[in-house]
Measured scan of single mutants.
Amino acid sequence: MSGNGNAAATAEENSPKMRVIRVGTRKSQLARIQTDSVVATLKASYPGLQFEIIAMSTTGDKILDTALSKIGEKSLFTKELEHALEKNEVDLVVHSLKDLPTVLPPGFTIGAICKRENPHDAVVFHPKFVGKTLETLPEKSVVGTSSLRRAAQLQRKFPHLEFRSIRGNLNTRLRKLDEQQEFSAIILATAGLQRMGWHNRVGQILHPEECMYAVGQGALGVEVRAKDQDILDLVGVLHDPETLLRCIAERAFLRHLEGGCSVPVAVHTAMKDGQLYLTGGVWSLDGSDSIQETMQATIHVPAQHEDGPEDDPQLVGITARNIPRGPQLAAQNLGISLANLLLSKGAKNILDVARQLNDAH
């Protein structure tokens, strides 16, 4: 009898209710805020589980004197976190989706994509230029951005401005803007500013005609071990179906173009009346040469937790077992079709030249 009692006690200790789920994140304040929001949602869904947040620095956090596009290494903000995932030191990792490459290392998958916040870019102005827009900034004003995508589009749109690289986390960039006289304004992701509670610093939100956004911008991705079915089931509740389908289309477009950090590629997606609209573009580094096109596809946005595919093969690095396969494939095909259209119009040449120029500098 006593033996059975011990077995029952052991089973209770090993039951999922007692389990601590370890969540990996970057150390920056924004990353911690984003991770806290994901953990809060998981806690609400699984009140019996405990969650421990483990923060670590990544290569991208450490190399702050070089433009991201020049470092010449993929997975700048993800490699150390993936290493911890691989060694079973954490069970899942919360990322900004735009930091996750469209091809993940073997053994990993994006197990959830959370509801997207505003994906557009924002302009934050130096205190002396508050009330201005990019259009009304004085001639030769210097605007800071760490992104080739932003610089290429904005140089084309605002030729009277000069664009220079600015690195560091959000706090560091804002301090550089406010305390030094080098920059009249800087460009940042609206979602990051909003998550930090800095709505009052948003001086201008850039519309798609001015600057399309990065693939996955404004959404959070939760990376897990691809074979860890328990954790895949656990994080599945975080999937937002519309965000998922938009981001599958965007990531398929980028992957098929073979774009990345070192080339200016941008997108804009919208879901309306059962249609998914995808606009994508590529630019030369100075913005003088560009190709942009829009395509659409009829896609039914499923309700969360309709029964999805059981075999769960990944699409552009994403596993969404609780979302039907048909809409996911339709979104992926839309991204591939748009990429093929741009490639047929000469996108590869623009991107190759951009890559060579970026590598040469």
Rank of each mutant, 00 (worst) to 15 (best):
T41L: 09
T41W: 08
K43A: 09
S45D: 12
E52Y: 08
I54D: 06
M56C: 04
T58K: 01
I63M: 13
I63E: 01
I63F: 12
L68Q: 06
L68A: 12
L68T: 06
K70R: 08
G72D: 07
E73Y: 10
S75K: 15
L76S: 11
L76Q: 10
F77T: 02
F77D: 03
T78M: 04
T78P: 02
K79V: 06
E82D: 09
H83K: 12
H83T: 13
A84Q: 06
E86A: 10
E86Q: 11
N88S: 11
N88C: 13
E89C: 08
D91Q: 06
L92H: 05
V93C: 08
V94P: 05
H95E: 03
S96H: 05
S96L: 01
K98W: 01
D99R: 03
D99E: 06
L100R: 00
L100V: 08
P101F: 06
V103N: 09
V103A: 07
P105W: 09
P106D: 11
G107L: 09
G107R: 09
G107I: 01
T109P: 00
T109Q: 07
G111V: 04
A112V: 07
I113S: 03
I113M: 02
E117I: 15
N118F: 09
P119F: 10
H126I: 15
P127H: 05
K132R: 11
T133L: 08
T136F: 08
T136Q: 10
P138T: 10
K140E: 14
V143K: 04
R149M: 00
R149V: 02
R150C: 06
R150Y: 00
A152F: 04
Q153S: 08
L154Q: 06
L154N: 05
L154K: 05
R156T: 12
R156V: 12
K157W: 05
K157Y: 12
F158Y: 14
F158S: 08
F158L: 11
P159L: 10
L161D: 00
E162Y: 15
F163H: 11
S165T: 14
I166Y: 07
R167V: 09
R167W: 07
G168V: 01
G168L: 04
N169L: 09
L170S: 06
N171T: 11
T172G: 09
R173A: 02
R173D: 01
L174Y: 09
K176S: 10
D178G: 13
D178T: 07
E179H: 08
Q180F: 03
I186Y: 03
I186N: 06
I187K: 01
I187R: 02
L188V: 03
T190C: 14
A191W: 01
G192H: 01
G192W: 01
M196P: 01
M196V: 11
G197T: 03
H199M: 13
I205G: 12
I205K: 08
L206F: 12
H207F: 08
P208T: 08
C211S: 11
M212P: 02
M212F: 15
M212C: 01
G216D: 05
G216Y: 06
Q217I: 03
L220H: 03
G221W: 03
G221A: 07
G221M: 00
V222E: 06
E223S: 03
R225T: 07
K227L: 15
D228C: 12
D230K: 09
D230F: 02
D233T: 09
D233W: 03
L234S: 03
L234D: 05
V235E: 06
V237Q: 04
H239I: 10
H239C: 10
E242Y: 00
L244D: 00
L244Y: 14
L244H: 03
L245G: 04
R246S: 13
C247M: 04
E250Q: 09
E250F: 01
F253R: 00
R255S: 11
G259Y: 05
C261R: 04
C261H: 00
V265S: 02
V265T: 05
H268K: 09
A270M: 15
M271Y: 15
K272C: 06
L276V: 14
L276N: 00
Y277Q: 01
L278H: 03
G280D: 04
G281W: 10
V282P: 01
V282N: 04
V282H: 05
V282K: 04
W283Q: 11
W283M: 00
L285R: 10
L285C: 07
D286F: 07
S288R: 03
D289G: 07
Q292N: 11
T294G: 14
H300K: 14
H300T: 15
A303E: 10
A303P: 02
D307C: 10
G308F: 00
P309N: 15
E310I: 03
Q314W: 10
Q314E: 14
L315C: 15
V316E: 05
G317F: 01
G317A: 01
I318V: 14
I318M: 07
A320C: 07
N322I: 09
N322K: 10
I323D: 07
P324T: 14
G326S: 11
G326F: 01
Q328P: 11
A331G: 15
A331C: 13
I336T: 03
I336Y: 02
S337I: 08
N340R: 08
L341Y: 07
L342S: 08
L342W: 03
K345C: 05
G346F: 07
N349T: 12
I350P: 00
L351T: 13
V353N: 15
R355L: 11
R355V: 13
R355Y: 08
R355M: 15
L357W: 00
D359G: 13
